[in-house]
């Protein structure tokens, strides 16, 4: 009896351990679209491919350089010309990007229709800037110069529909003196998080360089705002990456902007 029980258990063990499934997900090749439509600018797109997690997986049968891409506006589709390296451009300027207009993207990739649609937001209105010049000392992290900071620069604007806005700040001065002593900024451009209010504050310690800085206030769509959400990535709590591309990944979105300037003067 004991012998039979032993061999029964052993057989069960062999049966159970021989039935384990593979832990590798099957790769699905999808195009990655990157396109920002802005009024007054030609339509440009960047198409790339997803990199497989498993190195032995192959890539798509369709090349990203030979796609037949069309952008639709007002019921008419216009071909976008491939320039190589996945870059496509409306070089002839056939499509005018106009605020409050809707544009669609359409092409075939690996036998699937890739589609997207976006609307061009209106230009920011009612834009004011609390200061065009600020004076501050160079920040030495080891000293107490933190307490002598000027007030934040307040960028205010009208936002009746509570849509998304963000700012970027970049130094355009030919002479670049870093705001932080003895350090080279990791990013030349400061970018705020998207907001649905009517004000964005630029803190002096968020600036990278003294001199003339260009502030761009962007009016963006919700599909772009989702890119700023941190992607949770565990097998228990994963999030699909944000995208507004059907049968694809990436972003096809309209943007509009207003430009301001801020002179950051170094106090000696």
């Amino acid at each position: 009896m004991k012998t039979k029980l032993f061999f029964l258990s052993l057989s069960a063990w062999v049966l159970i351990t021989s039935c384990q499934k593979s832990g590798i997900a099957e790769f699905s090749s999808l195009p990655v679209v990157e396109s920002y439509l802005a009024p007054g600018k030609k339509i440009n797109l960047m198409i790339s491919e997803k990199i497989p997690y498993n190195e032995s997986e192959g890539t798509a049968d369709t090349s990203v350089n030979t796609l037949d891409i069309s952008v639709g506006y007002n019921g008419v589709y216009y071909n976008i010309i491939p320039l190589g390296n996945g870059i496509y451009s409306d070089t002839a300027g056939n499509v005018s990007v106009i605020a409050d207009s809707t544009y669609t993207l359409l092409f075939m990739f690996n036998g699937s229709h890739v589609y997207s649609s976006t609307i061009i937001p209106p230009r920011p209105v009612g834009v004011t800037q609390s200061a065009t010049t600020i004076k501050m000392s160079q920040i030495d992290p080891e000293s107490q110069s933190w307490f002598d900071m000027p007030d934040p620069v307040e960028i205010t604007f009208s936002n009746d529909d509570q849509s998304y806005y963000l700012v970027t700040v970049v130094c355009i001065d030919s002479v670049r003196v870093p705001v932080y002593k003895d350090s080279i900024p990791e990013n030349d451009i400061y970018s705020s998080m998207p907001v649905t209010g009517t004000q964005i504050n630029i803190m002096p310690m968020q600036l990278s360089y003294f001199g003339l800085n260009r502030i761009i206030l962007y009016h963006i769509n919700p599909e772009y705002a989702t890119f700023f959400t941190q992607q949770a990535s565990t097998s228990q709590n994963y999030q699909e990456p944000p995208t507004n591309i059907e049968n694809g990944l990436g972003i096809f979105t309209g943007i509009n902007a207003d430009t301001l300037f801020l002179n950051v003067v170094q106090e000696k």
Binding site: G23, A25, V32, Y36, K50, P241, L249
Partner: peptide, 13 residues
């Protein structure tokens, strides 16, 4: 649910 790939996107900033 396992990942099957990764990709990058350039942002407007």
């Amino acid at each position: 649910t396992a990942p099957d790939g990764a990709y990058s996107v350039n942002l407007i900033n």
